[in-house]
C-alpha cells in the first residue's frame, strides 16, 4: 500500500517535471525562432551595406568633352562626358575589340558618366590630366567581389562574361577594386539597378505616411479615450463604440485598402 502511494507520488512528480519542461521548451522555441530569424536577416543582409568600387584612371581630355579653352562652370556642366567615360573603360584593356569594349562598359553602373562629371566639377583643374576615379561596379561584379556569385557556372548561364571576370580579376590583383561603406544606400532613391538602389525616397514616404497617420490617429484616439473613460455613461451605445474600436484594430489591413481604391 505504501509502495503504491510512493509510486503514485513519483508519477505525479514526474508529470510535474514534464509539464515544467514543456513550458521551458516552449519559451526556448519562441526565443529560438527569434534568434534564427534575426540571425538570418542580418547575415544575409549585412553585405548590402558594403559597395564595390572600381578604381579607373580617367583622362579628362578637353577635346573629347567638346570643351573650349578656359571653360566656365556652366560649360563644364554641359560638357559631354560619355566619350571620356567610355574611353577610360575601354582603356582597361588596350587590345579589346568592339564587343569587349561593350562588355567593359557594362562592368560599371550606368551612372559612371555622372561619377566622372562630379569628379571634374569638384576640381576643374583636372582638365587634360589623368586621375583615378571611383566608379560603382555593376551589381553582378559587386556580388563576385563579395564571394556570392556562382563563378563556376557555364558562361552562358550567368550574366558576367568570362572576359569581364578576367579583367575584374586583374583589377583585383592590382588593388584597383575597393569595398566601401554603401552610403548611397541611404541617399539614393529606388532603382532597377541594384548597385544604385537606395532607400531615401521610400524612407521619406514612410516618414510622411507615419506623420499623416499620427496627425489623424493621435488626437482622435486620445479624445475618444478620454470620453469613453471619463465621461461616457455605461450603456449599450458606448459598449457598441468600444466593440467597434477593438474590432477596427483587428480588421485585416487589406480590407482598408478597398476604400483607398474607390477614392
Amino acid at each position: 500500500m505504501n509502495k503504491d502511494k510512493e509510486q503514485l507520488l513519483n508519477k505525479r512528480y514526474k508529470a510535474e517535471k514534464r509539464f515544467r519542461l514543456y513550458g521551458q521548451s516552449a519559451i526556448f522555441m519562441a526565443l529560438l525562432f527569434l534568434t534564427i530569424f534575426i540571425f538570418k536577416i542580418f547575415s544575409t543582409g549585412y553585405s548590402a551595406f558594403q559597395k564595390t568600387w572600381l578604381i579607373v584612371p580617367v583622362t579628362f581630355d578637353a577635346e573629347l568633352m567638346m570643351l573650349e579653352q578656359n571653360p566656365s562652370k556652366e560649360d563644364l556642366k554641359d560638357a559631354d562626358y560619355y566619350d571620356i567615360a567610355l574611353k577610360s573603360m575601354a582603356d582597361l584593356d588596350p587590345n579589346a575589340n568592339e564587343d569587349q569594349e561593350n562588355e567593359l562598359k557594362r562592368m560599371v553602373s550606368y551612372f559612371f558618366e555622372r561619377e566622372i562629371k562630379r569628379e571634374l566639377l569638384n576640381d576643374p583643374t583636372l582638365i587634360g590630366k589623368t586621375k583615378d576615379v571611383y566608379l560603382t561596379a555593376s551589381d553582378d561584379l559587386d556580388q563576385v567581389f563579395k564571394g556570392n556569385y556562382p563563378r563556376d557556372l557555364p558562361e552562358d548561364q550567368r550574366r558576367v562574361t568570362d572576359y569581364q571576370l578576367k579583367i575584374f580579376d586583374q583589377l583585383v590583383e592590382l588593388g584597383k577594386v575597393e569595398s566601401k561603406f554603401n552610403l548611397s544606400f541611404f541617399t539614393y532613391p529606388d532603382s532597377r539597378e541594384a548597385e544604385l538602389a537606395g532607400i531615401a525616397s521610400s524612407f521619406m514616404g514612410s516618414i510622411f505616411s507615419i506623420l499623416v497617420c499620427l496627425m489623424i490617429a493621435f488626437p482622435v484616439a486620445v479624445l475618444a479615450a478620454i470620453y469613453l473613460e471619463e465621461f461616457a455613461p455605461k450603456n449599450r451605445f458606448t459598449d457598441f463604440i468600444e466593440v467597434n474600436i477593438n474590432n477596427l484594430a483587428a480588421v485585416p489591413s487589406i480590407v482598408f485598402e478597398h476604400p483607398k481604391i474607390l477614392l
Binding site: A221, L223, A224, A232, T238, I241, N244, I245, L248
Partner: peptide, 12 residues
C-alpha cells in the same frame, strides 16, 4: 470628445 469616439463607428 463624443465626436472623436464616433470615429471608430464611422470608419466601420
Amino acid at each position: 470628445l463624443f465626436t472623436a469616439s464616433l470615429a471608430a463607428i464611422l470608419t466601420t
